[in-house]
Design a binder for these strands. Structure first.
Lengths: 186, 186
DNA sequence: TATTAAATAGACCAATCAGTCTATTTGAAA
DNA sequence: TTTCAAATAGACTGATTGGTCTATTTAATA
C-alpha cells in the first residue's frame, strides 16, 4: 500500500488541479484519501504547507516530464521543441483542464508571495531548458523571449474554453506557433 | 451617488479579478461596498447569480474595449490587430494580473457549466471579431486558427509569473507574435 | 396626506472552514 | 517482552461561509 504522505500528495495534486486551491477543502481531501484528520496534520502543519509540498514534489516533476528534451544531437533542436509541443496533444487531462502550473499560478501568485516564488522557480526552470535547447540551432534572436513566447502560447492555447477543447483544436491553434518556430531555423 | 446594484457589480468585478470566485467571500464584498446584507440579496438571489451578472455586465463590456477594432479602412487589418496588442501593454492591471476573462475561465469553467457558457460566449465574440477583421488582408490560411492563436498567446503572455511581469517583458515576449502576424500579410 | 412597493438594515441560521487536542494503535528497536 | 516514538483516529473548537428572515426606512405615486 502507498505510504500515507505520498497518497495525500497525489490526491491533493489532482483535487487542486481541478477545483483550485480555494475550491478544495481539507474535508474533500480527507474523504478522497480515506484517512482521518489526525493523519494529515501529522504530515503537514497547514493546508498551505501541504500544497507548497505538492508544488515541489508533484507539480515540479510533472512539468519536467513535458519539457525534458531528449538530447538527440542528430536532430535540429527546433524539431525537438516542436515534438514536445505535439506530444502535449495526447495528454487528455492537459487538453481538458489546461496546464496545472499555469492554473495554480493564476489563482495564487497574485495573492501569495510563497506560492509565487515556488511557481516562478519551476517556470524559470522550464524556460531556461528551452533557451539552452535552442541556443545553437537558431538564427540570431532573443532566445529567452522566444522560449517565453513558446510557453505562453502553449499554455494560453490549453487554457481556451474547455467546452470546445479537443486534441484537434489544440493542434490547429498551435500550428501557428509551429510555423513561427520553423522560421527560426538557421 | 452610484446606484447600489451598479456599485456591487463594480466591487465584485474587482474582487474576483484579484482573489478569484472562491477566494472572494460575500462578507468581503459587503465590507468593500459598505452596504448591509439585505441590500445585496435584494438585488441578487445568490453569489453565483451575482457573479454571472458581473460577467455579462462588467467583464463582457471590458473585453469589448480591448478588441473593438477601429474600422479604419485605410489601414491594413493586420496592423489594426497589432495596434490592439500593443495597446494592452499600457494597461497596468492587465500586465500585473492577466486577463480577467482568462483567469475566471480557468478557475470556474471546468467545474461549472453556467460559468463556462457565459465565458465561452464572450470568448467566441472576440474570436469572431478578429476573424472578421482579418478576412480581407490576409494570405490564404485558417483565419479562425490564427485568431485563436493570437488570443491564446496574448492571454498566455499576460499570465506568466506576475513577479516578473512588466510592460517591457510583455512587449519582448509578444514580439514573436507580431513577427508571425506580419508574415501573414497579403 | 395616505398608500405601497422598493430598498435598507442587520440579527440570525445551519453548514462548513481550517486547525487543535487527547487518546489509542502500531511497529520497530532495545 | 518492554519501551517509545510514529502514526492513526476522530471529537471538538472558534471563525467564517452563503443564505434567510423580519423589521424598518425611503421615496414615488395615488
Amino acid at each position: 500500500m502507498q505510504p500515507t504522505r505520498e497518497k495525500i500528495l497525489d490526491v491533493v495534486f489532482e483535487l487542486i488541479y481541478i477545483y483550485g486551491y480555494n475550491g478544495t477543502s481539507m474535508s474533500m481531501i480527507l474523504k478522497e484519501c480515506g484517512i482521518p484528520k489526525g493523519s494529515l496534520y501529522h504530515y503537514f502543519k497547514s493546508k498551505k504547507e501541504m500544497v507548497l509540498a505538492v508544488i515541489k514534489e508533484r507539480l515540479s516533476p510533472r512539468m519536467d516530464l513535458f519539457y525534458d528534451f531528449a538530447n538527440d544531437t542528430n536532430k535540429n533542436s527546433i524539431d525537438v521543441l516542436i515534438d514536445a509541443i505535439y506530444k502535449i496533444a495526447d495528454k487528455e487531462q492537459l487538453i481538458t483542464y489546461g496546464c496545472p502550473l499555469n492554473r495554480l499560478n493564476q489563482e495564487m501568485s497574485p495573492i501569495d508571495k510563497d506560492f509565487e516564488e515556488a511557481i516562478t522557480l519551476i517556470y524559470n526552470n522550464i524556460r531556461d531548458k528551452i533557451v539552452l535547447l535552442l541556443k545553437n540551432d537558431v538564427i540570431n534572436c532573443d532566445t529567452q523571449a522566444v522560449a517565453e513566447f513558446t510557453i505562453a502560447s502553449v499554455w494560453g492555447t490549453l487554457s481556451l474554453s474547455p467546452a470546445q477543447s479537443s486534441k484537434k483544436r489544440y493542434l490547429s491553434t498551435i500550428s501557428a506557433l509551429i510555423t513561427y518556430l520553423q522560421s527560426l531555423k538557421k
